[in-house]
Computed example of a mutant assay.
Amino acid sequence: MLRDSKGVFIVTQTPFDESGAVDLESIDTLVDFYIRHGAQGFTVLGVSGESGKLNADEALQVAQRFIKRAGALPCVVGVSNPSLAQLTDLSARVMDLGAAGVMIAPPTGIQTDEELHGYFAEVFRRNEGVPTVLQDFPFASKVAMSVPAMLQLIETHKEIELVKEEDLPDLNKISRLRAGGGRRVAILTGNNAMYLPLELGRGADGPMAGFSYPEMLSEVYALHAAGKVDEADDVFDIYLPLLRYEAMGFWGVCARKEMMRRRGAIRSATMRTPGPKLSAADIQELDRLSARLEKRLAARRG
């Protein structure tokens, strides 16, 4: 069940070919790549997965391919949508396909706790019994959820089994959610894993994030879970320059796709229009960052 989730849930990219069409075969190689590097679950159709650029048929097709290739590993599908009718329809369809649950953020425009609770009351009236990840990402949703409001949502709606916490700053928010008592849910963190070791120290159960070197996420989590906090920090520090480079919004996603193309995970780094394209200067920076990273990894391996 999602409330027992621990470890690395990779926020997946959506592969496109050079023409901008969905590349289903690259979904297979991408899932295999993530699994080889320690993924314990997947989140598909998230913000960095370019879900807003897919039509309804494509979204369902992408979700189905990820779910099928992931096999026994859980897949959470992002279904946030200003239209409750479309949110409910996609939720039902992906659950029928075998999704472990859905991820929902409140829609832009909600301004008060009363509106927030009213919105989710209607969501769960329609999506009764569907395991849900409550996404706290005000940078994208433009909705600020207070800790008391989130705790009340968790107590009121049994469907909420996991919180994706990526408000900034999120460290004290994680601590307050953990100290809030009541029904325990899993907490996974986003923000491109930029603060992962600190978040784990505050009680997060792992990352729900993307990175072109997912083995870093899984190793940092495993070391931290084993009580080897300093070692986890040391590993994190090796990858930090590239991680930071990939954390610059959709432009950073474009850089991540290029790195995953180089690593053989996908065939093309294409972002669907409208989306950024890397310049010659960007490519040179990635060359340097990846070369320095590989040099440090080689030295570590001895």
Rank of each mutant, 00 (worst) to 15 (best):
Met216Pro: 04
Asp32Ala: 12
Val77Ala: 03
Ala63Cys: 02
Gly180Cys: 07
Met259Asn: 13
Ala291Phe: 06
His117Thr: 03
Arg65Ser: 13
Ser83Ile: 15
Leu278Met: 08
Pro274Cys: 14
Arg36Ala: 13
Lys6Asn: 14
Tyr245Thr: 04
Met103Leu: 10
Val229Pro: 00
Asn127Ser: 04
Val147Gln: 06
Phe236Val: 04
Asn127Pro: 01
Gly109Leu: 11
Arg244Asp: 06
Ser91Met: 06
Ile110Phe: 06
Ala193Arg: 01
Ser290Asp: 15
Phe33Arg: 03
Gln135Lys: 10
Ser80His: 04
Ala186His: 05
Leu90Asp: 00
Arg292Glu: 14
Ala232Gln: 03
Pro169Lys: 09
Val11His: 03
Gly41Arg: 07
Val44Ile: 08
Leu240Ser: 08
Leu198Gln: 14
Gly7Cys: 09
Leu243Gly: 02
Arg65Asp: 09
Glu58Gly: 08
Gly52Cys: 11
Leu60Val: 07
Asp17Leu: 04
Phe42Trp: 00
Gly210Val: 00
Lys173Ser: 06
Pro207Leu: 07
Tyr239Pro: 01
Leu30Ala: 11
Tyr213Pro: 01
Arg267Glu: 12
Ile174Pro: 01
Glu294Asp: 13
Gly181Ala: 06
Asn127Gly: 01
Met1Arg: 05
Ile35Pro: 01
Phe9Glu: 07
Leu151His: 15
Gly71Val: 09
Ala100Ile: 11
Leu162Met: 15
Ala255Ile: 01
Leu87Ala: 11
Phe211Asn: 04
Asp287Gln: 08
Leu153Gly: 08
